[in-house]
Amino acid sequence: MSADLKARFEAAVAQSKNLSERPDNATLLKIYALYKQATVGDNEEKKPGFGDMVGRAKWDAWAKLKGTSAEDAMQQYIDLIESLS
């Protein structure tokens, strides 16, 4: 992974906290999932129970990215945040 990509990703993470408008829930889930895939890798966590709707939505969004490389997830995250800015 290039240092440039990592630096651009970290800048996008900082930028994500200062967006002028709060993204819709679907976009927020995508931001969360791309961040987790980029920083943790494939979702190996236990799926939350039915009572935890938010947790399940986050888990599902992250699980959909299984097999995506950290570099690809970082680039997609950067592109998404830039499109929202």
Score class of each variant (00 low, 15 high):
Ala73Pro: 05
Lys30Ile: 03
Leu84His: 06
Ala7Asp: 14
Ala12Asn: 00
Ala7Cys: 03
Lys64Val: 02
Leu5Thr: 05
Lys6Glu: 13
Lys30Ser: 13
Met74Asn: 04
Ser16Gly: 05
Leu65Ser: 04
Asn18Trp: 07
Tyr32Asn: 14
Ala33Pro: 04
Pro48Gly: 14
Gln37Pro: 07
Asp52Ser: 12
Tyr77Trp: 04
Trp59Tyr: 14
Ser85Lys: 00
Asn25Gln: 13
Lys36Leu: 10
Gly41Thr: 05
Gln37Lys: 00
Ala70Phe: 14
Tyr32Phe: 15
Trp62Met: 13
Leu65Gly: 03
Asp24Leu: 04
Trp59Asn: 13
Val54Leu: 15
Asn18Arg: 00
Met1Asp: 12
Asn25Gly: 12
Ala3Lys: 00
Gly51Trp: 03
Leu28Phe: 13
Val54Gly: 15
Lys66Met: 07
Phe9Thr: 03
Gln76Asn: 14
Leu29Pro: 13
Met1Pro: 11
Leu28Tyr: 09
Tyr77Gln: 00
Val54Met: 13
Gln37Leu: 09
Val13Met: 00
Asp24Tyr: 01
Ala33Gly: 05
Lys17Phe: 12
Ser20Cys: 13
Ala38Arg: 02
Thr68Asp: 15
Gln37Tyr: 10
Gly49Glu: 10
Lys58Met: 02
Arg8His: 09
Gln75Gly: 09
Trp62Val: 07
Asp60Tyr: 06
Ile81Ala: 08
Gly67Glu: 14
Ser69Gly: 15
Arg56Thr: 11
Gly41Leu: 06
Ser16Val: 02
Trp62Asp: 14
Thr39Asp: 09
Leu65Gln: 01
Ser69Asp: 15
Met53Tyr: 14
Gln76Met: 13
Glu82His: 01
Ile31Asp: 10
Thr39Tyr: 07
Gly51Asn: 14
Ala33Met: 01
Ala7Gln: 05
Asp42Pro: 04
Ala26Phe: 07
Asn25Trp: 15
Lys36Thr: 08
Glu10Trp: 08
Lys17Gly: 10
Gly49Ala: 06
Leu28Met: 15
Ala70Gln: 10
Ile81Asn: 03
Thr68Asn: 02
Arg56Met: 08
Asn43Trp: 07
Ser85Phe: 06
Lys6Pro: 08
Gly41Asn: 03
Thr39His: 05
Glu82Gln: 02
Asp42Phe: 02
Phe9Trp: 03
Ala33Gln: 02
Leu84Trp: 06
Asp24Asn: 01
Gln15Cys: 10
Ser83Tyr: 10
Leu34His: 10
Ser85Ile: 03
Pro23Ala: 01
Ile31Glu: 12
Ala3Trp: 05
Ile81Leu: 05
Ser16Cys: 12
Met53Gln: 07
Glu45Tyr: 05
Val40Gln: 11
Asp42Tyr: 02
Gly51Met: 05
Asp60Met: 09
Leu84Asn: 01
Val13Arg: 00
Asn25Tyr: 14
Lys66Pro: 08
Gly67Gln: 05
Thr39Lys: 02
Leu84Cys: 06
Gly51Val: 08
Gln37Trp: 07
Lys64Glu: 03
